[in-house]
Simulated assay, not measured.
Amino acid sequence: MLIFLTGGVRSGKSTYAEALVERLLNKEAVYIATSKKTDAEMEERIKAHKLARKEGRVPWRTLEQQQGMSTLFPSLKETDVVLLDCATNWLANELFTPPSYNWPSNWEWIVANMVDEVKALHKKVRHLIVVSNEIFQGGYEEGVTANYMKALGRFHVEIVKRADVAGEIVGGIPRLKKGQIHL
Rank of each mutant, 00 (worst) to 15 (best):
T15C: 00
Y16Q: 04
Y16L: 07
Y16V: 14
Y16A: 11
Y16G: 07
Y16T: 05
A17M: 02
A17R: 04
E18K: 04
E18G: 06
E18Y: 03
E18C: 09
A19S: 10
A19T: 07
L20F: 07
L20N: 08
L20C: 12
V21A: 13
V21D: 07
E22A: 15
E22K: 08
E22V: 15
E22N: 11
E22M: 15
E22Q: 11
E22S: 15
R23S: 15
R23F: 02
R23K: 15
L24S: 06
L24Q: 07
L24R: 02
L25Q: 03
L25V: 10
L25M: 12
L25P: 09
N26A: 08
K27N: 12
K27S: 12
K27F: 00
E28V: 08
E28N: 09
V30L: 08
Y31C: 12
Y31K: 09
I32G: 06
I32V: 14
A33G: 12
A33W: 00
A33S: 12
A33E: 04
T34K: 06
S35W: 09
S35L: 12
S35M: 14
K36N: 03
K36H: 00
K37Y: 13
K37P: 14
K37N: 13
K37T: 15
K37E: 15
T38G: 04
T38P: 00
T38Y: 03
T38C: 06
D39N: 14
D39F: 08
D39I: 11
A40S: 14
A40W: 14
A40M: 11
E41H: 08
E41M: 05
E41R: 06
E41W: 06
M42E: 07
M42K: 09
M42Y: 01
E43C: 11
E43D: 14
E43A: 15
E43M: 13
E43S: 14
E44C: 00
R45Y: 05
R45A: 03
R45M: 04
R45T: 04
R45P: 02
I46E: 05
I46G: 06
I46T: 03
I46Y: 01
K47Y: 01
K47N: 06
